[in-house]
Amino acid sequence: MAAQSALARAFDSDLWWSFKRSPVTVVSAIVALACILGAVLAPWIAPHNPFDLASLNLIDAFKPPAWTGDGDATYPLGTDDQGRDVLSAIMYGARVSLLVGICAVLFATILGIAIGLVAGYVGGTVDSVLMRIADIQLTFPSILIALLIDGIVRAALPREVHDRVALFVVIFAIGISAWPAFARTVRGSTLVERNKEYVLAARVIGVSPLRIMASHVLPNVLGPVLVIATLGLGGAILTEATLSFLGVGVPPTQPSLGTLIRIGNDFLFSGEWWITIFPGVALIAMVLSVNLLGDWLRDALNPKLR
């Protein structure tokens, strides 16, 4: 009964109403959902397995999309130089892109919330030190930090070890460059909440600061965090694609959308445009739909715009 009423409340909420009233949001939600489902379910619904070397045949290489004259219906979006199905490669690539993006944003969110809560609630010197660190962090572009960390790890670890941890390195590099945005927002909201009387009431009772932060302050500062996380997801996916395009991102054994675009880029001028255009379109669709959702969420959660 509780679950049912929660569902009913969700469909009756202001959020749902503003969602239904915005066609752009509905479309981007559908696109985002399609991207996510395609990525998550790739092993089951993709027409081919692009990483199964046994099934690859070089005769099938450079097949154009199915609707062109030379196309083959088994490869709807054509094949690349190795004879891999572009559609399947995109679905598998989106999996890697999404995984890196979501993990990086989660990492940045958790780090940012923890630092922001402590800085805002404790205040004083702790606050100043943490926020100056965030300021310093913000002066470095995220790509630069990611390149730096990747370079260090690449130099420090042997190649096969590096390939195994490369995914985590990218997640860490993107996450670490994104936390200041979360920390600043959470700190700002925490400064407001910590002087509210319900926090004072908990302090009078003698509830420990950690518990107050977790059970009183945190639930009340999460709204803006959700918005930044959604907008940050698009950014993280793009950063990962940039790194992979530059060849310092995920290992070539697990190509992401960025890797696919880089591979296809080599064949762009020889006429095989589909190898790079389709992964690019998929990337744009994914990032754009997530960003539009984030924009809508920001407006929907902003009481001043209601």
Partner: peptide, 23 residues
């Protein structure tokens, strides 16, 4: 114990009344 001035700020908006009173 203490009772506060602003009845709109002294109760955590995310908590149910029973949890607020039981805190």
């Amino acid at each position: 114990q203490m009772i506060f001035q602003d009845p709109y700020a002294s109760l955590n908006p995310r908590w149910r009344v029973q949890d607020i009173i039981a805190e």
